[in-house]
Computed example of a mutant assay.
Amino acid sequence: MQPFRLDPTTPAHGPAPHGARQIAGGTNLVDLMRLGVERPTALVDLDRVSAPALRGITRLPDGTFRIGALTRMAEAAADTELRRDLPMVVQSLELAASPQIRNMASLGGNLLQRTRCPYFRDVSWPCNKRERGSGCGAMEGITRHHAILGTSDSCIAAYPGDFAQAALALDAQIEITGQGGVRRMKLARLHRLPGATPDVETALDADETITAIHLPAPGWARRSLFLKRRERTSYSFALVSAACALDLDGDRVREVRLALGGVATIPWRAFPAEQLLAGERLTEECAHAAGVAAFADAVVRPDNAFKRDLGAALIARALLAARALPAARDLPVTETRR
């Protein structure tokens, strides 16, 4: 494999050799290359691209946060305005991976990270995500960490990320740049359900790159949080995670956003739970009913059936914890952005 490095003045959507893969932090791609899962003919080093729009956090006039796709996870987690206005975003970043990885991993790359399914990562097993039509080793295997929502007869691999859930709950959008120019897309449309083609994971064209993430920041999103249940207290992927943002009128739900991780093949918005809660008094009973509703369509296997109850309980806990938060946080902001 020959390295392919862009000149620092080359646009991020410049031409690349056939079979090339983009690399930024490398925390996912390099790992998969070592395992033999990824075999690019060349690497396009995005870190050498000097375009300022690819880095940093900007507050737009409408209050939206625009975050360059090469911004590191640690940089976003340390941002004082994000911490004040979108706490669930910061929490999703702080609970991910390790400090060393957060210092290297880019937010754009984090959105595109590939599954941690052991049958995908071990090339001795058949995997429809690696090679369409080859079969799925997980179907008759150990499925403790696999998905129970959004699955198909071809794939039950769970999406591993955390940040995507928090962004999805906010109806985030992404900027995408390719040889045809720049376009915007809702984050909810980026990841594709496996269906019969689990090898096609996103809606990006081959020449396209995520260049920025746009996070809306309504005032009520200060009442938000991110909860994660895992087997270890650090450097472990979620068995179940929940991003929750809540707007209350007294004790009644005016607006609620819920997104789930660890349980689905893509970042998963819990629309049935949101619909059940709309206009209702947020009691313990209502919160638990919402959790159950979120998993009504779950397809479980003996090893991962526990995720249905764990996920329902985590949603209830997130809702009740969000209810206990103040409607607005008044953390001081000492940073001035240029």
Rank of each mutant, 00 (worst) to 15 (best):
I156Q: 10
G25C: 04
R323Q: 15
M88D: 12
A270Q: 07
L149D: 04
H214I: 00
Q2M: 10
D309Q: 10
G135Y: 04
L325G: 13
P87Y: 07
A157Y: 11
S124P: 03
T10I: 10
A287C: 13
R323D: 10
I101N: 12
R39K: 12
R132L: 14
P126N: 05
P218R: 07
A172V: 04
P8G: 14
A316L: 11
T64V: 07
P3N: 08
A296C: 03
R144W: 13
R34F: 08
A42W: 10
P216V: 01
A278H: 09
R132K: 06
W220F: 15
A78L: 13
A53Q: 10
F271G: 02
L70D: 01
V49W: 10
A312M: 06
I176N: 00
H191D: 05
E75G: 05
L276V: 07
E201K: 08
M33V: 13
E285T: 14
F226C: 06
L168Y: 04
S134K: 10
L246R: 10
A312N: 06
G63H: 06
E285A: 15
T143D: 04
P272F: 00
Q100L: 14
E38F: 07
M104C: 07
P302C: 02
D62A: 03
L282T: 14
A273T: 00
A316N: 11
R21C: 11
E140N: 15
T151K: 08
L70T: 05
R183F: 07
T143P: 01
T58D: 09
R116W: 05
P61M: 01
R144K: 12
A318I: 08
L170G: 06
A293L: 09
D199T: 01
S92I: 11
A305D: 12
H288E: 15
L190Q: 03
K186D: 02
Q91G: 11
Q2N: 11
P267V: 02
I210V: 11
C127T: 13
R252Q: 15
T115N: 04
G279W: 02
L314D: 07
V292I: 13
G137W: 08
A290T: 00
P118Y: 14
G19W: 10
G25V: 02
I266R: 15
K129T: 13
Y235H: 09
A77M: 12
R83P: 05
E280D: 08
I266N: 07
A169E: 00
Q275P: 03
E231V: 08
A313Y: 14
T10L: 15
P40T: 03
N110L: 00
P194Q: 01
D62W: 00
D330T: 14
A196F: 04
E255L: 01
T41L: 13
T197S: 08
D303R: 09
G291T: 03
D199W: 01
A294S: 13
D207S: 01
R337V: 12
A164H: 11
A321V: 12
N304H: 08
R301A: 11
P332L: 05
A327M: 15
R83Y: 12
E231C: 03
P216C: 03
L149I: 07
V123N: 04
K307T: 05
A264S: 15
G161S: 14
I176K: 02
N110V: 02
E255F: 03
S124F: 07
L35M: 15
C136Q: 01
A238C: 08
R301S: 09
